[in-house]
Amino acid sequence: MRYAKFIGKVACLLGFITALFANPAEAKLTVVTTIPDLAAIAQEIGGEKVKVQSIAKGYQDPHYVEAKPSYMVQVNQADLLVYVGLQLEIGWLPLLIQGARNPQINPGAKGNLDSSKAIQVLEVPSGELDRSMGDIHPEGNPHYWLDPRNGVLIGQQILDRLKLLSPKDGAYFENNFKTFRDTLTAQIADWEKRIAPFKGIQVVSYHKQFEYLMNWLGFSAVGYVEEKPGIPPTAKHLASLVDLMKERGIKIILIANFTDPKIAQLVAEKSGAKLVVLPTSVGGEEGIDTYSKLFERIVSELEREFKQLQAFNVQRPSVSQP
């Protein structure tokens, strides 16, 4: 009952704001995204014809975002809602959609875009799932924006939807998308060339969020600091992980910059490895204000760390090693 009254009050506020600021003659398309990477891509394609806002910030864990009334206001004003899908935002996005009372962005409406639909999803689980397995995503790993090749696919979907919502600006959107696609494709070739000498390197990761990045660049994780996704690891698991790292000569632990590094740092110290902190979204670190700058920062960091492995003559495990 209290929640229903709260939603009712928010709806009244949204109606007032809509009437106050509506100006169809001059309005740009309002695009609201769940993460800043989608916002950055939408901005490059929409250009001056769109107003883009992201709910989550680049330094936040997108799994855990508070469904604030201010976000409901943003979603209420949206002509297009773009989200990651694969249940990444399941804990908060449905509440925002319900509270926003905006039929244009409800599931199935042309203003609702699940950008995972064009993606070849990794790690889709099979068999029966239950909560004892941790925070398993039943539709597959949702961190697909960390492969820039998927950024092109995301951009194509956003282009198609913007053209549907504003046909008169279709040629403008097409031209912007072509520039985005061609520029990113050239950058992808450069990034792949820089990391190519290090293919086959094995690392440990804190959480299963770098799978698309590793699949793209050709290195892999032999283990994870988390024993189960979203659940703090046990001492037994950490001891086993340290033993594995020593046995295989694993010298790098990857962790997102929004994750508490204490446990991972302890593993690094006990195993003789280095903790490598990476941004995972646009806005995650100072100076990362575009999608391509995110990958330039990530690739530069990985390139530097991999070169140091070679400089210190650390054995590189083979991919085929059991």
Score class of each variant (00 low, 15 high):
V267E: 03
G134S: 03
I7W: 06
I298Q: 03
Q104K: 14
V52I: 11
P94A: 13
T18K: 13
L122T: 06
D169Q: 14
P125A: 01
G170E: 09
E247K: 13
E227S: 03
K163W: 14
V31R: 08
L122C: 12
P103N: 05
P232R: 06
K9P: 05
I288Q: 02
I188C: 00
P125R: 02
G15F: 00
R161K: 15
D160C: 07
S318W: 05
A56G: 11
L241R: 04
F6E: 15
L80F: 13
V65P: 04
G284M: 02
V152E: 10
A118M: 11
A78V: 09
N175F: 13
P69V: 14
A100E: 04
A264Y: 04
N176M: 06
P229R: 03
K246A: 11
P229F: 05
A109F: 05
I195V: 08
R316S: 06
K274T: 11
P167G: 15
P148C: 10
A19E: 09
I55Y: 03
I17H: 09
L184Y: 02
D135W: 11
T179K: 14
T183P: 01
I250K: 08
P317V: 12
I55L: 04
D114M: 03
P94E: 13
V222D: 03
E174W: 01
N112T: 08
G111T: 13
G287E: 00
V242Q: 03
N176K: 07
F6I: 15
I97T: 07
P279M: 05
V121R: 09
D190V: 06
L159G: 06
Q87S: 14
E123W: 04
F16R: 07
D147E: 10
H207F: 09
Q60L: 10
L86V: 03
N176A: 00
V50Y: 04
H63F: 00
D147H: 04
D135K: 14
N76C: 03
A311V: 11
I250A: 15
T259P: 08
V314L: 10
P317H: 01
L244Q: 10
Q53K: 15
E139A: 12
E296T: 03
E66A: 06
P261G: 09
P197K: 02
L13K: 08
I252L: 13
K193C: 01
K110W: 05
A40V: 15
E305D: 08
N175Y: 14
F219P: 00
K117D: 08
S54D: 02
A22S: 07
